[in-house]
């Protein structure tokens, strides 16, 4: 079983905040339009996005994704990190492009 903590280690991702490290990963979804993500992402997906505003936390929580993976070197602000921790939402980050990350995750799960 692939978990958020394991993915982080194997794929060498940066852990921004990880209150639920043992959450299982079953797939991945790439997208930056929030409604599109809510319409298409599945429960327990890794959500790869360049969006880092506070609204992504509600989307991540409601769509029930395993974690948010900020791609392309996007840096979250302090408020996002604090709120994610309170709400129990995992956030990872990487300098790689969304495509490279999707390819990497695809090979691992």
């Amino acid at each position: 079983m692939m978990t958020v903590a394991k993915l982080c280690e194997v794929a060498n991702l940066c852990t921004i905040v990880c209150p639920e490290p043992e959450r299982e990963i079953k797939g991945a979804y790439c997208g930056d339009l929030l409604s599109w993500v809510m319409g298409r992402a599945k429960s327990s997906d890794v959500w790869i996005t360049i969006m880092s505003n506070i609204n992504i936390l509600a989307v991540a929580s409601l769509a029930d994704v395993a974690c948010v993976l900020l791609s392309e070197g996007v840096k979250p602000d302090e408020e996002l990190v604090k709120t994610a921790e309170q709400k129990g939402i995992n956030i990872l980050a990487s300098d790689k492009t969304s495509f490279e990350l999707a390819k990497l995750i695809g090979a691992l799960i």
């Binding site: 930056d32 339009l33 929030l34 409604s35 599109w36 809510m38 319409g39 969006m51 505003n53 609204n55 992504i56």
Partner: peptide
């Protein structure tokens, strides 16, 4: 710019 306004709100509600 916040990632909303994709024109998917009402269609998602129906979906």
């Amino acid at each position: 710019s916040l990632g909303f306004g994709a024109g998917m709100g009402l269609p998602n509600m129906k979906r």
